[in-house]
């Protein structure tokens, strides 16, 4: 998981430079040049260039067109729906993630490995399959379709379906971030708190949570980025009803298919900005985790 790798503390710079400057351990300069060039070219071509392209295309017809595209009623509805979905999915996954990580890191029970595998399932299953799965369960011809129709509950091609699909695909982020962290910290501090008379929620609030807060925030940020950007699963269950069940990624696709490039890229630039913001917060959290990790 890149998240786990990325969250490893930095702070090796001093030993790194020592390693590099020492003629006994340093790489030959041409090796360094080749590796560095490869990495930079790849980064420029596949990451930086597309990012720039999004903003260039979005602003090609001028700021006015840009603002009009964003102020469009359907675009605003898509932004609102995306925010609403994230706002529901995040707290749910926060609770699920903490509960799952707690169970796995603190208790021995049958089926622990099964639970671990299940947590990873959303990563290994194609999002389109996830969407399809919900259609098969809750769609008009699905298992619960007729029951839902009788009770006038709409899930597929409606907001609940979009939320369900998003919750599913973003489920692993918080749990995956917390499990290794909680396992590494052990349960001694919590035991100490219990012996000192703390009740269950006090232990969680005053001891567990402060110890995992940065990891938790990190997981939530990743979870949020994925929730807002999810396309495949949401696309299957949404029905693409303009102004009602279109999230931002879906709206971008529709605009693009209508050859409305300026508007498509304008909305896409919002998503890109969101990604950049996520990166900034993520870096800041990493920095905090690192410095607080250093102090302890």
């Amino acid at each position: 998981m890149n998240a786990v790798v990325a969250s490893l503390p930095g702070g090796r710079t001093s030993s790194q430079t020592r390693f590099e400057r020492n003629s006994a351990t340093a790489e030959q300069s041409w090796v360094r040049a080749v590796v560095l060039t490869l990495a930079l070219v790849f980064f420029g071509l596949f990451l930086l260039l597309p990012l720039i392209a999004v903003f260039v295309e979005a602003l090609r017809k001028g700021l006015e067109v840009y603002w009009t595209a964003l102020a469009d009623a359907d675009a605003l509805a898509a932004v609102r729906l995306t925010l609403l979905t994230a706002l529901i999915a995040l707290p749910l996954n926060l609770v699920f993630g903490v509960a799952a990580a707690w169970a796995i890191a603190r208790f021995e029970f049958r089926g622990k490995h099964l639970l671990l595998t299940l947590i990873d399932l959303p990563f290994s299953v194609s999002p389109v399959i996830v969407g399809l799965m919900y259609v098969l369960l809750f769609g008009a011809h699905g298992w619960f379709g007729s029951w839902l129709a009788e009770h006038d509950i709409r899930i597929i091609f409606a907001v609940p379906g979009i939320v369900l699909a998003t919750v599913f695909v973003t489920f692993p982020f918080v749990a995956r971030e917390l499990i290794p962290l909680m396992q590494a910290q052990g349960k001694e501090e919590e035991e100490a708190a219990v012996v000192l008379g703390a009740r269950g929620w006090q232990v969680f609030w005053y001891v567990t949570l402060p110890n995992i807060k940065w990891g938790l925030l990190y997981g939530v940020i990743l979870c949020n980025a994925r929730a807002m950007g999810e396309f495949g699963a949401v696309s299957v269950v949404s029905g693409h009803i303009r102004g009602l069940t279109n999230t931002m990624p879906l709206h971008v696709e529709i605009l693009y298919n209508e050859y409305n490039f300026a508007a498509a890229f304008a909305v896409a630039s919002l998503l890109a900005l969101l990604a950049l913001l996520t990166l900034v917060i993520k870096t800041w959290v990493e920095h905090r985790t690192h410095t607080s990790g250093h102090r302890h």
Binding site: E189, A192, V195, L196, R199
Partner: peptide, 18 residues
């Protein structure tokens, strides 16, 4: 545990690090 009124000292201190 919390009603037994015991004091417990752990090998690795288990101080609350934050």
């Amino acid at each position: 545990v919390r009603e037994r009124q015991v004091g417990f000292v752990f090998q690795h201190y288990a101080l609350f690090r934050h």
